[in-house]
């Protein structure tokens, strides 16, 4: 598989002394949708900003489309479109003028037909002569996407594209991302909505405290780290799990009223039936049962919880 972005040993320490990225390595494949997850302050935006040329790296190299982002910045940046997290737009310009400006800025000759197509794709065509300040937040977000697409980039960065947008716009956005992927555009998105990553991404990277904690195919990740749990509500509280059941992966809630049995989602034999028989044999009565499948969110929370800042293990890439 072709690599379109290659990040090697990337470090960033801000003037304040804050180390935002620590020895980060990452490869993005051509044509994929890559979701970068991480809590606030994990280094997502710093990583994107360095690749796009807004922030200088302290050490390390980045190749975009095979070009070094520092020494061959013209070639590298020409391939990249960026939709930043903040809604930063001109206020007094028209939609048409600002998108036309972006295309020129990225060194492309004027192409009104292309701009028209983008504005129509983003439902902005009717607003093309409106001043940006007159637009709603959602429309401004679309304008920023239109600007990023104006020079036909091969790589598109979407930093929190759906933060604070309504459900309808979010769905439109997802549709657009799918369309762009079909056209061969590589998309890297950061998001707080894990559902978004679950819905869209081919691969997922989790970043925390400036390190890449994990990178994997979404499906593999869900399978590998996905667990199922059986929660058994007991009729009477237990003080501890009986000796006879200690071999099983069981945990007891603090009030002693619930036993949680963890099992592998991929196994043919879940082990539920033997467990229930054993409970009965040991005279443990139960009132209710429910099973639960872990979502990407659980996996994410677990990973982020695990990767403490003092941990020195480098980010591993298991894809």
């Amino acid at each position: 598989m072709d690599t379109v972005i290659s990040v090697r040993n990337l470090n960033k320490t801000y003037d304040s002394g804050f180390q935002a990225l620590k020895h980060l390595d990452l490869d993005i494949r051509k044509g994929e949708i890559f979701a970068l997850l991480g809590p606030n302050g994990a280094g997502k935006t710093t990583l994107i900003s360095i690749i796009c040329g807004i922030v200088r790296p302290s050490a390390g190299t980045v190749l975009a489309g095979g070009f070094d982002i520092q020494h061959q910045y013209r070639a590298a940046r020409g391939k990249i479109g960026l939709v930043p997290q903040e809604l930063t737009t001109d206020a007094f310009e028209t939609v048409w003028a600002t998108v036309t400006f972006s295309r020129g800025l990225f060194g492309k000759p004027r192409d009104p037909a292309h701009i028209e197509r983008i504005l129509k794709d983003l439902s902005l065509w009717d607003k093309r002569n409106d001043k940006i300040m007159a637009l709603s937040g959602g429309m401004k977000r679309r304008v920023m996407i239109a600007k990023a697409l104006s020079h036909e980039p091969e790589i598109l960065f979407l930093d929190e594209p759906t933060a604070g947008v309504d459900v309808e716009l979010r769905r439109d956005m997802w549709q657009l991302v799918e369309q762009l992927r079909d056209r061969g555009v590589t998309i890297i998105l950061t998001t707080h909505y894990i559902q978004e990553a679950e819905e869209l991404a081919d691969r997922i990277g989790v970043i925390n405290h400036g390190r890449l904690v994990l990178v994997d195919e979404k499906n593999a990740l869900m399978q590998k780290l996905g667990k199922r749990e059986l929660h058994v509500q007991l009729a009477a509280p237990l003080t501890c799990i009986p000796e006879a059941l200690s071999a099983l992966p069981l945990s007891l809630s603090e009030d002693g009223l619930e036993i949680t049995f963890t099992f592998d989602a991929r196994d043919e034999q879940s082990g539920i039936a033997p467990l229930l028989r054993q409970l009965e044999d040991n005279g443990i009565e139960f009132r209710d049962l429910r099973t639960r499948e872990s979502s990407l969110e659980d996996i994410f929370v677990h990973l982020v919880h695990e990767s403490r800042p003092d941990e020195t293990a480098p980010g591993r890439e298991s894809a």
């Binding site: 796009c52 040329g53 807004i54 910045y73 013209r74 070639a75 590298a76 940046r77 020409g78 990249i80 960026l82 930043p84 903040e86 930063t88 737009t89 001109d90 206020a91 972006s102 800025l105 990225f106 060194g107 600007k147």
Partner: peptide, 14 residues
């Protein structure tokens, strides 16, 4: 001030 400088900085311009 408005933040739109990001675009100029990320563009292939010297």
């Amino acid at each position: 001030f408005s933040g739109t400088i990001y675009e100029v900085l990320s563009a292939p311009v010297s």
